[in-house]
Computed example of a mutant assay.
Amino acid sequence: MEALPKLRVLILKSNKFDGNMSLPSRSNLPFQKLQVLDISDNEFVGSLPQTYFKNFRAMMDVKENKTDLITSNDDYFFLRYVEMRITLKGLDQLLTRLLEAFTTIDLSSNNFCGSIPDSIGNLNSLRYLNLSHNNLMGHIPASLGNISVLESLDLSSNKLDGRIPSELTRLTFLAKLNLSMNNLVGQIPQSTQFSTFENDSYVGNLRLCGVPLTRKCNEENGQQMRPEEEEEDDEEYGFIDGFGWRSVVMGYGSGIIVGIGFGCWIIRFGRPRWFTTRNSHIHNTSYITVFFENRYV
Rank of each mutant, 00 (worst) to 15 (best):
L171P: 03
L171R: 11
L171A: 06
T172Y: 09
T172A: 10
T172E: 10
F173C: 05
L174H: 00
L174G: 02
L174V: 05
L174P: 03
A175P: 06
A175Y: 07
A175V: 07
A175K: 14
A175C: 08
L177W: 02
L177T: 02
L177K: 00
L177I: 05
L177H: 02
N178S: 06
N178W: 01
N178T: 04
N178C: 06
L179I: 03
S180H: 00
S180N: 02
S180F: 01
M181T: 01
M181I: 02
N182F: 04
N183M: 03
N183I: 01
L184W: 00
L184C: 04
L184I: 01
L184R: 13
V185N: 12
V185K: 14
G186D: 00
G186Y: 00
G186M: 05
G186L: 06
I188F: 03
I188D: 03
I188W: 04
P189V: 04
P189R: 04
P189M: 04
Q190Y: 00
Q190W: 00
S191Q: 08
S191I: 09
S191P: 10
T192Y: 10
T192I: 13
T192V: 08
T192K: 11
Q193H: 10
F194S: 03
F194T: 02
S195Y: 07
S195N: 11
T196G: 03
T196R: 12
T196F: 03
F197I: 04
F197C: 03
F197Q: 08
N199S: 10
N199A: 08
N199Q: 13
D200W: 04
D200A: 07
S201T: 01
Y202A: 00
G204E: 02
G204S: 01
G204Q: 02
G204D: 03
N205G: 05
L206I: 07
L206C: 11
L206H: 11
L206F: 10
L206S: 15
R207L: 11
R207A: 11
L208F: 08
L208G: 05
C209D: 00
C209N: 01
C209A: 06
G210I: 03
G210E: 06
P212M: 10
P212V: 05
P212F: 13
P212N: 07
L213E: 02
R215N: 15
R215I: 09
R215H: 12
R215Y: 13
K216V: 12
K216S: 14
C217L: 07
C217N: 13
C217D: 13
C217Y: 13
N218W: 07
E219K: 14
E219T: 15
E220R: 15
Q223S: 15
Q223P: 07
Q224P: 13
Q224E: 11
Q224V: 12
Q224G: 08
M225Q: 15
M225S: 15
M225E: 15
M225N: 14
R226Q: 11
R226D: 15
P227R: 09
E228G: 08
E228H: 12
E228V: 14
E228I: 15
E228F: 14
